[in-house]
Simulated scan of single mutants.
Amino acid sequence: MSRTQNLRQNVVNQMIDSIINGHLHSPLPSQATLAEMYNISRTTVRHTLAHLHQRGVLEKVNGDYVILRRPLAEDGFDCITHSLDEQTQRFEQAFYQMINQRQLRAGDSFTELQLARQINVSPVVVREFLLRFSRYDLIDNVRRGQWRMKKLDQHYAEQLFELRQMLETHALSRFINLPVEDPRWLQAKELLIQHRQLRDTIATDYRQFSQLDRNFHSLLLSAANNRFFNQAMEVISVIFHFHYQWDETDLKQQNIVSMEEHMAILSALLCRNDQVAARELLRHLETAKQAMIRSLKLDLA
């Protein structure tokens, strides 16, 4: 199936959902308004309206399209079987992955339609996500439907790590006070073993550290039992990876240092030494902050 056909079928499904959920009322808005709402061309709007007219969902009266009946599932297509919530979750994961894999970099421009086609979700899902994401001051809305990734400065990095320090130090204090039978103690022990195993091959396998890093910080934050902590750290992780402009040597050295710092924190945790664990965590966060600042300076050079 061509991308154009797939897009048209997606829009048909989205318009059906909008009618069912009461977001579109009879008579429908003008074609120009619909094109703006769904961030699509008027040609795609016309194809969508023609399909729904042929199915008997819409009727054209004095130049306007009115709703004749409530649409059914069979009036749409099977190209998207996921709900809007599922599409949003899939797009969010894909968007973060594109940043972490450096498919989107500081200064890059893109359109909502490009991302919708690439990830196979509704353009409405893309726009709503980007509007929410824009509150982190990481993207600029250049004009309707077009965005640009922003370049950050040292002040932004320092504010970011101030927040990260508050979140993780609080989570650490909660972790120390977990009951002995809590399964996270066993997870921490297993994670320390995994770090030691990677240390033996880090010279060649340093790229594998990224998953250990995610597991480590996720385990630490889990002790806070706060969903908003996890959401904030997800964004921090995106920003952190987004602005790393190191060459392979720098990345290798940074991963070696971070791994040793993780092991120091985990060892102190397992020994129930809260003061040493807190000190090592602060050292680890300062190392990460300085690394990000260096990366930003390289990016601006």
Score class of each variant (00 low, 15 high):
2 S>D: 07
9 Q>I: 03
12 V>Y: 00
13 N>Q: 01
17 D>N: 06
17 D>F: 07
18 S>M: 10
21 N>R: 12
24 L>R: 01
25 H>T: 14
25 H>W: 06
25 H>N: 12
30 S>T: 12
32 A>N: 13
32 A>T: 15
35 A>Y: 03
41 S>P: 03
46 R>N: 15
47 H>R: 13
54 Q>D: 11
54 Q>S: 12
56 G>I: 02
65 Y>T: 03
68 L>K: 15
68 L>N: 13
69 R>H: 06
78 D>K: 01
79 C>E: 00
80 I>C: 00
80 I>A: 01
81 T>Y: 00
82 H>N: 00
82 H>L: 00
84 L>V: 01
86 E>L: 03
87 Q>F: 00
88 T>S: 14
89 Q>I: 03
91 F>K: 04
95 F>G: 00
97 Q>M: 10
100 N>C: 12
101 Q>I: 06
102 R>I: 02
103 Q>E: 15
109 S>L: 06
110 F>Q: 02
115 L>I: 05
115 L>R: 04
117 R>K: 14
118 Q>C: 05
127 R>W: 06
133 F>W: 06
137 D>P: 03
141 N>K: 09
141 N>E: 05
142 V>M: 09
143 R>M: 07
151 K>V: 14
152 L>S: 11
152 L>M: 14
153 D>I: 00
154 Q>C: 09
157 A>N: 07
158 E>Y: 11
162 E>G: 11
165 Q>M: 08
168 E>Y: 08
169 T>A: 06
171 A>E: 01
174 R>S: 12
175 F>K: 08
178 L>E: 05
182 D>A: 14
182 D>W: 09
184 R>G: 09
187 Q>F: 11
188 A>C: 04
190 E>F: 06
192 L>F: 05
195 H>V: 06
195 H>D: 10
197 Q>C: 03
199 R>E: 08
202 I>C: 02
203 A>K: 15
204 T>Y: 09
208 Q>A: 13
211 Q>D: 12
213 D>G: 08
215 N>S: 14
218 S>W: 04
221 L>W: 01
223 A>Q: 05
225 N>C: 12
227 R>Q: 13
232 A>Q: 13
235 V>D: 03
235 V>M: 07
237 S>K: 07
240 F>E: 10
241 H>N: 11
243 H>N: 13
245 Q>A: 14
245 Q>L: 13
246 W>T: 14
247 D>A: 05
250 D>V: 08
253 Q>A: 10
254 Q>M: 10
255 N>R: 08
259 M>T: 05
265 I>W: 02
267 S>K: 08
268 A>D: 02
273 N>L: 05
275 Q>P: 04
276 V>M: 07
282 L>E: 11
284 H>M: 02
284 H>I: 03
285 L>S: 03
285 L>F: 06
291 A>M: 08
295 S>P: 02
295 S>C: 04
296 L>F: 00
297 K>D: 09
298 L>Q: 15
298 L>H: 15
298 L>N: 14
301 A>K: 15
